[in-house]
Protein backbone atom coordinates (compact mmCIF):
# COMPACT_ATOMS: atom_id res chain seq x y z
CA UNK A 1 0.00 0.00 0.00
CA UNK A 2 1.32 3.37 -0.91
CA UNK A 3 -0.81 5.75 1.11
CA UNK A 4 0.08 6.16 4.72
CA UNK A 5 -2.94 6.31 6.94
CA UNK A 6 -3.01 8.54 10.00
CA UNK A 7 -3.22 5.52 12.21
CA UNK A 8 -2.54 7.11 15.52
CA UNK A 9 -4.97 9.93 15.09
CA UNK A 10 -8.04 7.85 14.29
CA UNK A 11 -7.42 4.98 16.65
CA UNK A 12 -10.10 5.00 19.32
CA UNK A 13 -8.88 4.91 22.82
CA UNK A 14 -10.23 2.24 25.15
CA UNK A 15 -12.28 4.69 27.15
CA UNK A 16 -13.89 6.51 24.23
CA UNK A 17 -17.58 7.28 24.82
CA UNK A 18 -18.70 5.07 21.92
CA UNK A 19 -16.76 2.13 23.26
CA UNK A 20 -18.09 2.67 26.74
CA UNK A 21 -21.68 2.87 25.49
CA UNK A 22 -21.38 -0.36 23.57
CA UNK A 23 -19.82 -1.96 26.61
CA UNK A 24 -22.78 -0.85 28.68
CA UNK A 25 -25.28 -2.21 26.17
CA UNK A 26 -23.47 -5.51 25.98
CA UNK A 27 -23.50 -5.78 29.76
CA UNK A 28 -27.20 -4.95 29.96
CA UNK A 29 -28.08 -7.51 27.28
CA UNK A 30 -25.97 -10.19 28.95
CA UNK A 31 -27.52 -9.48 32.33
CA UNK A 32 -30.95 -10.03 30.79
CA UNK A 33 -29.76 -13.35 29.38
CA UNK A 34 -28.40 -14.36 32.77
CA UNK A 35 -31.69 -13.52 34.48
CA UNK A 36 -33.65 -15.53 31.91
CA UNK A 37 -31.40 -18.53 32.41
CA UNK A 38 -31.45 -18.29 36.20
CA UNK A 39 -35.21 -17.88 36.70
CA UNK A 40 -36.10 -21.54 36.00
CA UNK A 41 -33.26 -22.66 38.27
CA UNK A 42 -34.48 -20.56 41.17
CA UNK A 43 -37.53 -22.78 41.63
CA UNK A 44 -35.59 -25.90 42.48
CA UNK A 45 -33.45 -24.17 45.10
CA UNK A 46 -36.37 -22.39 46.78
CA UNK A 47 -38.70 -25.40 46.65
CA UNK A 48 -36.08 -27.61 48.27
CA UNK A 49 -36.22 -25.50 51.42
CA UNK A 50 -39.97 -24.95 51.39
CA UNK A 51 -42.21 -27.09 53.59
CA UNK A 52 -45.23 -26.49 51.35
CA UNK A 53 -43.58 -26.27 47.95
CA UNK A 54 -45.55 -26.22 44.70
CA UNK A 55 -44.48 -25.51 41.12
CA UNK A 56 -44.53 -21.81 41.92
CA UNK A 57 -41.29 -19.98 42.46
CA UNK A 58 -41.60 -18.17 45.78
CA UNK A 59 -39.71 -17.55 48.96
CA UNK A 60 -40.70 -20.21 51.49
CA UNK A 61 -42.96 -19.02 54.31
CA UNK A 62 -40.94 -21.18 56.63
CA UNK A 63 -37.45 -22.23 55.64
CA UNK A 64 -36.85 -25.85 56.48
CA UNK A 65 -34.47 -28.70 55.79
CA UNK A 66 -37.24 -31.25 56.35
CA UNK A 67 -37.32 -32.05 52.62
CA UNK A 68 -33.70 -33.09 52.74
CA UNK A 69 -34.28 -35.02 55.93
CA UNK A 70 -37.20 -36.83 54.33
CA UNK A 71 -35.27 -37.96 51.25
CA UNK A 72 -32.05 -38.86 53.07
CA UNK A 73 -33.05 -42.47 53.55
CA UNK A 74 -31.33 -45.54 52.15
CA UNK A 75 -34.32 -46.27 49.91
CA UNK A 76 -34.66 -42.83 48.34
CA UNK A 77 -31.17 -41.42 48.29
CA UNK A 78 -28.28 -43.52 49.55
CA UNK A 79 -28.78 -46.66 47.45
CA UNK A 80 -29.54 -44.83 44.17
CA UNK A 81 -26.65 -42.42 44.73
CA UNK A 82 -24.28 -45.29 45.51
CA UNK A 83 -25.51 -47.03 42.35
CA UNK A 84 -24.81 -43.86 40.38
CA UNK A 85 -21.35 -43.61 41.92
CA UNK A 86 -20.68 -47.23 41.00
CA UNK A 87 -22.07 -46.92 37.49
CA UNK A 88 -20.28 -43.68 36.71
CA UNK A 89 -16.91 -44.50 38.27
CA UNK A 90 -16.75 -48.01 36.79
CA UNK A 91 -17.69 -46.63 33.38
CA UNK A 92 -15.17 -43.82 33.63
CA UNK A 93 -12.36 -46.12 34.83
CA UNK A 94 -12.94 -48.71 32.11
CA UNK A 95 -13.24 -46.03 29.47
CA UNK A 96 -10.04 -44.30 30.53
CA UNK A 97 -8.16 -47.59 30.62
CA UNK A 98 -9.37 -48.76 27.20
CA UNK A 99 -8.83 -45.28 25.69
CA UNK A 100 -5.28 -45.02 27.02
CA UNK A 101 -4.39 -48.39 25.53
CA UNK A 102 -6.08 -47.60 22.24
CA UNK A 103 -4.68 -44.09 21.99
CA UNK A 104 -1.09 -45.28 22.31
CA UNK A 105 -0.72 -47.01 18.95
CA UNK A 106 -3.02 -44.43 17.34
CA UNK A 107 -0.83 -41.61 18.55
CA UNK A 108 2.60 -43.22 18.11
CA UNK A 109 2.49 -45.31 14.96
CA UNK A 110 1.17 -44.13 11.66
CA UNK A 111 -0.61 -46.65 9.51
CA UNK A 112 -3.51 -46.72 7.11
CA UNK A 113 -5.43 -48.94 9.52
CA UNK A 114 -5.04 -46.45 12.34
CA UNK A 115 -6.25 -43.63 10.18
CA UNK A 116 -9.32 -45.65 9.25
CA UNK A 117 -9.86 -46.50 12.90
CA UNK A 118 -9.74 -42.82 13.82
CA UNK A 119 -12.33 -41.97 11.18
CA UNK A 120 -14.48 -44.77 12.54
CA UNK A 121 -14.07 -43.33 16.03
CA UNK A 122 -14.92 -39.86 14.78
CA UNK A 123 -18.01 -41.27 13.13
CA UNK A 124 -18.87 -42.95 16.43
CA UNK A 125 -18.68 -39.68 18.35
CA UNK A 126 -21.44 -38.33 16.14
CA UNK A 127 -23.82 -41.28 16.28
CA UNK A 128 -27.08 -40.56 18.05
CA UNK A 129 -26.92 -43.11 20.87
CA UNK A 130 -30.63 -42.76 21.57
CA UNK A 131 -31.23 -44.11 18.07
CA UNK A 132 -29.72 -47.47 18.92
CA UNK A 133 -31.37 -48.03 22.30
CA UNK A 134 -34.11 -50.23 20.82
CA UNK A 135 -31.64 -52.54 19.03
CA UNK A 136 -29.34 -52.42 22.08
CA UNK A 137 -32.26 -53.74 24.11
CA UNK A 138 -32.62 -56.64 21.64
CA UNK A 139 -28.89 -57.37 21.78
CA UNK A 140 -29.03 -57.35 25.59
CA UNK A 141 -31.92 -59.83 25.50
CA UNK A 142 -29.83 -62.03 23.24
CA UNK A 143 -26.73 -61.78 25.45
CA UNK A 144 -28.76 -62.27 28.62
CA UNK A 145 -27.47 -58.96 29.95
CA UNK A 146 -30.81 -57.26 30.62
CA UNK A 147 -31.08 -55.86 34.13
CA UNK A 148 -27.36 -56.48 34.57
CA UNK A 149 -25.53 -53.67 36.31
CA UNK A 150 -22.22 -54.64 34.75
CA UNK A 151 -23.80 -55.01 31.32
CA UNK A 152 -25.06 -51.45 31.62
CA UNK A 153 -21.55 -50.33 32.60
CA UNK A 154 -20.14 -52.04 29.50
CA UNK A 155 -22.64 -50.36 27.21
CA UNK A 156 -22.02 -46.95 28.76
CA UNK A 157 -18.28 -47.57 28.37
CA UNK A 158 -18.62 -48.49 24.71
CA UNK A 159 -20.80 -45.49 23.98
CA UNK A 160 -18.37 -43.06 25.60
CA UNK A 161 -15.29 -44.67 24.04
CA UNK A 162 -15.29 -42.82 20.70
CA UNK A 163 -15.17 -39.40 22.32
CA UNK A 164 -12.78 -40.59 25.03
CA UNK A 165 -10.35 -42.13 22.53
CA UNK A 166 -10.44 -38.91 20.61
CA UNK A 167 -9.67 -36.74 23.58
CA UNK A 168 -7.04 -39.13 24.94
CA UNK A 169 -5.26 -39.29 21.60
CA UNK A 170 -5.19 -35.51 21.39
CA UNK A 171 -3.71 -35.27 24.87
CA UNK A 172 -1.19 -38.00 24.07
CA UNK A 173 -0.10 -36.32 20.85
CA UNK A 174 1.05 -33.43 23.01
CA UNK A 175 3.51 -35.64 24.93
CA UNK A 176 6.87 -35.60 23.13
CA UNK A 177 8.07 -38.96 21.82
CA UNK A 178 11.68 -38.21 22.73
CA UNK A 179 11.02 -39.10 26.34
CA UNK A 180 9.79 -42.57 25.47
CA UNK A 181 12.76 -43.14 23.20
CA UNK A 182 14.95 -42.84 26.23
CA UNK A 183 12.86 -45.49 27.96
CA UNK A 184 13.03 -47.74 24.90
CA UNK A 185 16.78 -47.46 24.80
CA UNK A 186 16.81 -48.56 28.41
CA UNK A 187 14.98 -51.67 27.25
CA UNK A 188 11.43 -50.79 28.29
CA UNK A 189 8.57 -52.27 26.27
CA UNK A 190 5.99 -50.05 24.63
CA UNK A 191 3.51 -50.81 27.42
CA UNK A 192 6.07 -50.02 30.06
CA UNK A 193 6.90 -46.75 28.35
CA UNK A 194 3.21 -45.93 28.27
CA UNK A 195 2.80 -46.66 31.97
CA UNK A 196 5.95 -45.06 33.30
CA UNK A 197 6.55 -42.16 30.93
CA UNK A 198 3.44 -41.15 28.99
CA UNK A 199 0.69 -41.61 31.55
CA UNK A 200 2.35 -39.57 34.32
CA UNK A 201 2.92 -36.74 31.84
CA UNK A 202 -0.70 -36.57 30.75
CA UNK A 203 -2.36 -36.85 34.16
CA UNK A 204 -4.43 -33.66 33.77
CA UNK A 205 -5.68 -34.87 30.39
CA UNK A 206 -6.62 -38.24 31.84
CA UNK A 207 -8.46 -36.51 34.66
CA UNK A 208 -10.42 -34.44 32.16
CA UNK A 209 -11.43 -37.54 30.18
CA UNK A 210 -12.39 -39.30 33.42
CA UNK A 211 -14.54 -36.40 34.58
CA UNK A 212 -16.10 -36.01 31.15
CA UNK A 213 -17.14 -39.68 31.00
CA UNK A 214 -18.13 -39.74 34.68
CA UNK A 215 -20.47 -36.77 34.18
CA UNK A 216 -22.08 -38.34 31.13
CA UNK A 217 -22.66 -41.64 32.90
CA UNK A 218 -23.85 -39.88 36.06
CA UNK A 219 -26.42 -37.84 34.18
CA UNK A 220 -27.54 -40.48 31.71
CA UNK A 221 -31.19 -41.36 32.09
CA UNK A 222 -32.17 -43.23 28.94
CA UNK A 223 -29.63 -46.06 29.11
CA UNK A 224 -30.41 -47.31 32.66
CA UNK A 225 -34.09 -46.56 32.00
CA UNK A 226 -34.11 -49.11 29.17
CA UNK A 227 -31.57 -51.64 30.47
CA UNK A 228 -32.19 -51.88 34.23
CA UNK A 229 -35.43 -52.96 35.95
CA UNK A 230 -34.74 -54.00 39.52
CA UNK A 231 -35.41 -51.14 41.95
CA UNK A 232 -32.27 -51.93 43.95
CA UNK A 233 -30.07 -51.50 40.84
CA UNK A 234 -31.47 -48.13 39.76
CA UNK A 235 -29.10 -45.16 39.69
CA UNK A 236 -30.32 -41.77 40.87
CA UNK A 237 -31.29 -40.68 37.35
CA UNK A 238 -34.00 -43.32 37.02
CA UNK A 239 -34.98 -43.61 40.69
CA UNK A 240 -35.77 -39.89 40.73
CA UNK A 241 -38.11 -40.47 37.79
CA UNK A 242 -40.02 -43.18 39.64
CA UNK A 243 -40.04 -40.96 42.69
CA UNK A 244 -41.51 -38.16 40.60
CA UNK A 245 -44.21 -40.35 39.11
CA UNK A 246 -45.30 -42.65 41.89
CA UNK A 247 -46.91 -40.14 44.26
CA UNK A 248 -50.44 -39.10 43.39
CA UNK A 249 -49.76 -35.68 44.78
CA UNK A 250 -46.13 -35.05 44.04
CA UNK A 251 -43.90 -34.12 46.94
CA UNK A 252 -42.43 -31.13 45.13
CA UNK A 253 -40.15 -30.07 47.94
CA UNK A 254 -38.64 -33.54 48.27
CA UNK A 255 -38.23 -33.84 44.52
CA UNK A 256 -36.35 -30.54 44.51
CA UNK A 257 -34.22 -31.55 47.48
CA UNK A 258 -33.27 -34.84 45.88
CA UNK A 259 -32.52 -33.12 42.55
CA UNK A 260 -30.14 -30.80 44.34
CA UNK A 261 -28.33 -33.64 46.10
CA UNK A 262 -28.04 -35.48 42.80
CA UNK A 263 -26.79 -32.41 40.89
CA UNK A 264 -24.26 -31.19 43.42
CA UNK A 265 -21.43 -33.65 42.56
CA UNK A 266 -21.80 -32.71 38.89
CA UNK A 267 -21.29 -29.04 39.58
CA UNK A 268 -18.31 -29.69 41.84
CA UNK A 269 -16.67 -31.98 39.29
CA UNK A 270 -17.29 -29.54 36.47
CA UNK A 271 -15.64 -26.72 38.37
CA UNK A 272 -12.69 -28.98 39.21
CA UNK A 273 -12.28 -30.01 35.58
CA UNK A 274 -12.42 -26.38 34.45
CA UNK A 275 -9.67 -25.49 36.90
CA UNK A 276 -7.61 -28.43 35.71
CA UNK A 277 -7.72 -27.34 32.10
CA UNK A 278 -7.28 -23.74 33.12
CA UNK A 279 -10.27 -21.92 31.75
CA UNK A 280 -13.98 -22.10 31.42
CA UNK A 281 -13.78 -23.56 27.93
CA UNK A 282 -12.88 -26.79 29.71
CA UNK A 283 -14.78 -29.68 28.28
CA UNK A 284 -16.15 -28.15 25.12
CA UNK A 285 -12.70 -26.79 24.37
CA UNK A 286 -11.14 -30.20 24.34
CA UNK A 287 -13.67 -31.59 21.90
CA UNK A 288 -14.08 -28.63 19.60
CA UNK A 289 -13.20 -28.79 15.94
Amino acid sequence: MTTVRPVVATRLSVSSPARRASRLWASVALSLVAVTFVVPLAWIVLAAFDATATYETRLPDTWTIDNFRAVLTPQTTFIPIMNSVGLASLTASLTVLASLLAAYPLSRYRSRFHKGFMYGVLFGTCLPITAIMVPVYSVFVFLGLLDSFFGTVLFLTASSLPMAIFMTKNFMDAVPVALEEAAWIDGASAMKALGTVVVPLMRPGIAVVFVFVFLQAWGNFFVPFVLLFSPEKQPAATSIYTFFGQFGSIAYGQLAAFSMLYSLPVIVLYVLASRLIGGSFALAGSVKG
Partner: peptide, 19 residues
Protein backbone atom coordinates in the same frame (compact mmCIF):
# COMPACT_ATOMS: atom_id res chain seq x y z
CA UNK B 1 -23.36 -15.04 32.52
CA UNK B 2 -21.00 -17.78 31.41
CA UNK B 3 -21.43 -19.56 34.74
CA UNK B 4 -25.22 -19.32 34.71
CA UNK B 5 -25.57 -20.55 31.13
CA UNK B 6 -23.17 -23.42 31.76
CA UNK B 7 -25.05 -24.39 34.93
CA UNK B 8 -28.16 -25.29 32.94
CA UNK B 9 -25.94 -27.40 30.69
CA UNK B 10 -24.04 -29.39 33.32
CA UNK B 11 -27.13 -30.35 35.33
CA UNK B 12 -28.17 -33.97 34.85
CA UNK B 13 -30.64 -34.10 31.97
CA UNK B 14 -33.46 -35.44 34.12
CA UNK B 15 -33.10 -32.57 36.59
CA UNK B 16 -33.09 -30.06 33.75
CA UNK B 17 -36.22 -31.73 32.41
CA UNK B 18 -37.98 -31.48 35.80
CA UNK B 19 -37.06 -27.84 36.07
Amino acid sequence: VGGVVVLAWVLPEIVAAFI
